[in-house]
Computed example of a mutant assay.
Amino acid sequence: MSAPIPYSQYDPTSHLLLTPEDGEAPARVVRLRELGLGDTPVPEFDDFARELARVTGAPYAMVNFIDENRQYFAGLYTPGEDQAGVELGPAPRQEQPGRVMARDHGYCPHVIVRRKALVLEDVCDYPRFAGNPVVDEIGIRSYLGAPLIDRTGMALGTVCVVDQEPRPWGRQGLETIKSMAAELVAQINRRDPGI
């Protein structure tokens, strides 16, 4: 039996584990630099996020790389892109997410440490995840994400979609996000100067 994963942040009022400790982060930063990723937008990844949003029907999609302190959306799709003239309904509670997010916001840090896809059809059904800042700040209610594990075995980041409404992602959603992650990993591996 393996030892439990230590966690770096606790909610003292509820004793829930919030942000997982990520021992691979320093090595990940080195690997991302080798690949030229993690600190600037990548137009192909924006295109990928757009396609991911289309395939899943989600309003937000991201290609996310994570270091010790932050998350960087090298690929980003938000509501309104490619939708000129379409009525979008009520505005989100706050501005739409930018390219940078604190490491303790969202669910991708959990995916990268777990190295497995994560499906949250309604984050409020999971006390561990319901208290995440993105719930109150952006109104996120559902999440679907998968890790990007490159040819070296390093978990570089994630691909994910989120919605401000609960979503029944189901097995189909899980298979889709995993398949799309594998597709993007193949694209990332082609960037590798070591190949």
Rank of each mutant, 00 (worst) to 15 (best):
G145S: 03
F129C: 01
P127T: 08
V134F: 04
E137T: 13
Y126C: 12
R141I: 13
L148R: 03
D122C: 10
D150E: 06
V134K: 03
V123K: 00
G153L: 04
G139E: 02
I140Q: 00
T152F: 02
L144S: 07
R128C: 11
A117Y: 15
V119N: 03
A117M: 11
D136N: 14
L118C: 11
C124H: 14
K116F: 03
G145T: 04
Y143V: 06
R151Y: 03
R151H: 12
E137Y: 07
F129N: 04
V135P: 00
D136W: 09
G131K: 12
P133R: 04
N132I: 01
L120C: 13
P133N: 06
C124N: 15
P127I: 09
V134C: 06
S142R: 05
I149K: 10
L120Y: 07
R141T: 15
C124V: 15
Y126T: 15
A146S: 09
K116A: 15
G153S: 12
E121I: 14
K116S: 15
L148C: 01
P127E: 06
R128A: 12
T152H: 08
R151T: 14
E121P: 07
S142F: 03
Y143T: 05
G131N: 11
I138F: 11
I140N: 04
Y126V: 14
G153W: 03
I140P: 01
V123H: 02
V134E: 01
V119K: 01
E137L: 10
R151E: 11
G153T: 14
I140T: 06
Y126A: 12
P147F: 00
Y143M: 02
T152A: 07
E121N: 10
I149A: 08
L148F: 02
G131A: 10
Y126E: 12
D150T: 06
L118H: 08
G131L: 14
E137S: 11
I140C: 03
E121W: 11
R141V: 13
G139P: 00
I140F: 01
A117G: 13
G131Q: 13
I140M: 04
I138N: 10
G131R: 13
R141L: 08
G131T: 11
S142V: 12
C124I: 15
L120N: 09
R141Y: 07
G131Y: 11
E121H: 09
T152K: 09
A130D: 01
L118E: 12
D136G: 14
R151D: 12
L148T: 03
V123W: 00
V135K: 04
Y126H: 14
N132T: 04
L144T: 09
L144W: 01
G139D: 05
E121G: 09
R141Q: 07
A130P: 00
A146H: 07
E137H: 08
T152P: 04
G131V: 13
V119Y: 02
V134W: 04
P127H: 05
V135H: 06
P147I: 00
F129R: 02
D150C: 04
I138K: 09
I149F: 06
L120M: 10
V135G: 03
E121Y: 09
D125V: 12
I138T: 15
R151G: 15
